[in-house]
């Protein structure tokens, strides 16, 4: 499993580098291999197929234009691509903030359950390490961090959603981030 994953990641690094040299075939192949993942990221945050399609289009146009700046020493291609996608999706959320629906979900409903054991078996060592550290947080704080990551919501939106004062939400998240850093860097 680990070997396959590494090989796949190296292949994506290679494709992104080739796209950076204006190799259209490599770019098409990169799209074929990564668009489902990146579309998943967009859909998860935007909850709207049309908007997610527009953002996905923007993402790959940016990929084509910026691929030359990709440096595999700094981040793997898949990290580079998902980071870019989350940023684009969050920017879109901030631009269209007034259109956000009143989200009646409470945090308990909204937050994803932990991945199933089967799904977990397919995740990386880094992911397991991160979830171990998340597990060490208070349940409410862990939920807030996960909801923030997956929804792209602001502090304000999170506080409203969880029906806690803004200050409480900020301190939950900040404390969690500090704890995570200590746990992950140890």
């Amino acid at each position: 499993m680990a070997v396959t994953r590494t090989a796949e990641h190296e292949e994506l690094n290679r494709l992104l580098q080739q796209a950076g040299r204006s190799d259209q075939q490599a770019f098409a192949e990169l799209y074929r291999r990564t668009s489902s993942k990146l579309f998943g990221v967009c859909l998860r945050m935007l909850h709207d197929r049309g908007a997610a399609e527009e953002v996905l289009q923007e993402i790959y146009i940016t990929v084509w234009n910026r691929a030359a700046s990709f440096d595999e020493a700094k981040a793997s291609a898949i990290t580079w691509l998902t980071t870019l996608s989350r940023n684009k999706a969050i920017d879109r959320l901030r631009q269209h903030r007034e259109e956000l629906p009143d989200d009646p979900r409470t945090l308990d409903e909204a937050v994803d359950e932990q991945p199933s054991p089967a799904a977990q078996a397919q995740t990386s060592q880094e992911h397991r390490r991160l979830t171990d550290c998340l597990d060490a947080l208070e349940p409410q704080q862990r939920s807030s961090v996960r909801e923030a990551f997956f929804s792209g919501a602001t502090y304000n939106e999170l506080a409203t959603r969880c029906q806690v004062p803004l200050g409480t939400m900020k301190s939950w998240i900040r404390r969690s981030l500090m704890q995570l850093r200590t746990c992950l860097d140890s």
């Binding site: 668009s35 489902s36 993942k37 998860r44 289009q57 990290t79 992950l184």
Partner: peptide, 20 residues
């Protein structure tokens, strides 16, 4: 990013329509 990005592995893939 290196610390938090692994969470993205949990996101379910979704195939975009071919016209994208």
């Amino acid at each position: 990013q290196r610390r938090l990005q692994p969470l993205a592995e949990e996101i379910t893939e979704a195939t975009p329509a071919p016209y994208v």
